[in-house]
Amino acid sequence: MSIALQRTRSIANGRLGSLLLLLALCVVLIVVGQRVLSGGLSFFIQILVFGLANGAIYGLVALGYTMVYGIIELINFAHGDLVTLGAFIGLAFFPIFGLVEGKDLGIIGVAALAAVFLIAMVLTGGINVLIERVAYRPLRNSPRLAPLITAVGMSFVLQGIMYLWKGAFQIHVPDILPGTRLPLGPGASVGVKDLIVIAIAVVLVIGLNLFIDRTRLGKAMRATAQDRDAAQLMGIDINRTIAATFFIGAVLAASAGMIRGLYFNTVNFSDGYQLGLFAFTAAVFGGIGNIQGAALGGLFIGLVKAYGDAYFSSAWTDVYVFAILILVLVFRPSGLLGMRVPEK
């Protein structure tokens, strides 16, 4: 093409690019380092824990994105709304199980909470399976963007249902997790809540990993993600496998919604959209389709947001997150842990 810009070589390929990246990294490190030093170590750790807790939530949502993408290459825009839906469903069961604010949880309370988690997760999972059946499966062989648009439509539908259900208000989630904070140092502490959130997320991610590595269904999922036709030839029930993927994605999303509700004690019907955007970013960041990558990406985004808010201005946090994302992709085009797909 002889029109303008004859040779647009990517700077990322050259040595100059690497040098620039290194330089930029140094500048960032110096600036961040200065801020961190002036803030004190205990404050740094407090933000670290907060960021990890937040990142754990993003990570759980990102897992759903990455699994669905891995298996049918769909950016499931409705996934973020499943998070809110999970929280809404769980919230409806709080009074039934006697979970109210201002009461010590106790053994029974913990069991009740676990039951609510389970119900919210299973119901949301079921709904997502239904969504897949109605809105995505009929379009599996259609132009690639058609299911993307139904996903957008589904996002609107889910938000619409939640709006009808509870209105546009900030809905209070009972503060039932222990509010104890462990002192860290002068003016800094770590909440037990944060640690609980991180613990639950870690358990879920490990569970998911075991599931995918060890079980028949997990193997079927990996096979289907690799090559759907070949998997089918090997006798794998594709529809069932994809449905299972949607189910598990939604289960994780619902758990993230519950955790998030209990952590922030508030939820709104439209929360999922912004959350979903960041979770999707996390999934791509880690290398979309890659389970560990999604968890890592979630943590990374949680940390960037937490430190950005704490040390710089929260108005600019989103800009940092996306700017870092773009930079990472420019230099690592398949995300942090993504594999380069060789092409013939």
Partner: peptide, 21 residues
């Protein structure tokens, strides 16, 4: 008014299902 979200979403989904192209 509250239904607006829902209606728009349903319109998107049904058109795409009927005419994916």
């Amino acid at each position: 008014q509250r239904l607006n979200f829902l209606i728009f979403g349903l319109i998107l989904i049904s058109i795409m299902l009927l005419r994916p192209q």
